[in-house]
């Protein structure tokens, strides 16, 4: 190893040390609902702890709301080192300006290096405004998070076109680095009941929200989700047994009913419900094929689905090639049992 390399390494280490001293650690903006911590907040704490470990920093949580003080306990159990609580009746229900004002003040006092929020309605409203006001970069809907080789920049993968592929994005210069975490993408941390801490209460006087809620939108119905954009599709085929039962299943799962070409021929579904390359191409999160054999055109039209369950009596049915969960059985019986299984859980 020559001296210049050693100098370089040492220079880097010095820099790292200084940053760790001056940097305000990894922050999580906590979100609670109905007196409980939102799962995505706990997941974000898990991510924050991993980052903080490598950064040599502490994990802090900012908890804002009305009557949320006791929830700080859960945050400590999840592994944060410090909690700042702003408890005020003006902070619930959520509105942007009061929360924004408090967080901006908080982060101005203790400048964070990384700030994590949940990719929820609240996180999605807060994060861009915080980033804009504090001059940071924001990466939304992160599904993987790691540190790059410089050791201080977070690299995050975000799904493109709903997960067809991922772009890896980083915010190399600007600080703080804001990220919103996709709910369910990361495992929640272990809640250690022996971990305790005393949260720091922040005195706040929330500002007035700029947007006023007039009332419920009576009679408003959002436009129906098109089959091509549905997130859960229950498809019926000619082998489905009782088609009405499959329709009930679609309703129970809050999914869209569809079918293959054969189901249309048999009059089980309408023309706009045909999943086929000549009909509608779908890419839902979950695709449930009930009694569909799966011809080439049908399979090509549904292979974008993230998770496929196929129920068909013939083990040689081509649909099983595309399925994640294969059930070789009489669909009628399975669907009936499935309806019971779902009903008993709710």
């Amino acid at each position: 190893m020559d001296a210049s390399y050693l100098d370089l390494v040492m220079a880097q280490q010095e820099e790292t040390f200084e940053d760790a001293e001056g940097g305000g650690g990894v922050w999580v903006v906590a979100e609670s609902a109905g007196g409980e911590m939102a799962p995505v907040t706990l997941e974000a704490i898990g991510v924050a702890r991993t980052l903080a470990e490598s950064l040599g920093a502490y994990v802090y949580a900012a908890l804002l709301g009305d009557g949320v003080r006791l929830l700080a306990e859960t945050l400590y159990q999840a592994g944060v080192n410090g909690v700042r609580v702003a408890d005020h009746q003006g902070l619930s229900p959520f509105s942007l300006e009061p929360h924004l004002g408090i967080l901006v003040d908080l982060f101005a006092e203790e400048p964070p290096e990384v700030v994590l929020l949940g990719a929820t309605e609240i996180g999605g409203a807060l994060a861009p405004r915080l980033a804009q006001q504090l001059g940071g970069g924001l990466i939304e809907h992160a599904t993987t998070v790691s540190l790059d080789p410089t050791g201080r920049t977070v690299e995050a993968a975000i799904p493109i076109y709903g997960g067809e592929y991922f772009e890896v994005v980083a915010c190399p210069e600007a600080r703080p680095q804001f990220l919103t975490i996709e709910p369910g993408a990361f495992a929640g941390p272990f809640l250690d009941e022996y971990r305790r801490g005393e949260p720091t209460m922040v005195e706040v006087e929330p500002s007035e929200p700029a947007v006023r809620v007039v009332g419920l939108a009576e009679g408003f119905r959002p436009p129906e989700v098109r089959l091509a954009e549905a997130s859960l599709v229950v498809a019926v085929g000619r082998q489905a047994g009782d088609p009405a039962q499959v329709e009930r299943l679609a309703e129970a799962l809050k999914g869209r009913l569809a079918g293959d070409r054969g189901a249309w021929d048999a009059g089980l579904i309408e023309a706009d419900q045909v999943v086929d390359v000549r009909g509608t191409v779908v890419s839902p999160d979950v695709y449930l094929a009930v009694g569909i054999r799966g011809d080439t055109f049908h399979r090509a039209a549904m292979e974008g689905a993230a998770f496929v369950v196929a129920i068909h009596p013939d083990r040689e049915a081509p649909i099983f090639e595309k399925a994640d969960l294969c059930v070789v059985a009489e669909p009628g019986e399975v669907v009936e049992a499935l309806l019971t299984a779902i009903g008993s859980a709710d």
Binding site: G136, G137, L138, I139, T144, D148, E155, A157, G163, Y165, F166, E167, V168, V169, A170, C171, P172, E173, A174, V308, A310, F320, E321, K322, A323, D324, L325, C326, V327, V328
Partner: peptide, 20 residues
Amino acid sequence: PLLENRGRDFPPERELGVRV
């Protein structure tokens, strides 16, 4: 720009499903 693109990643290949 504040953000920098650092490449692409792809989901793992789809594997054959599990039979229940």
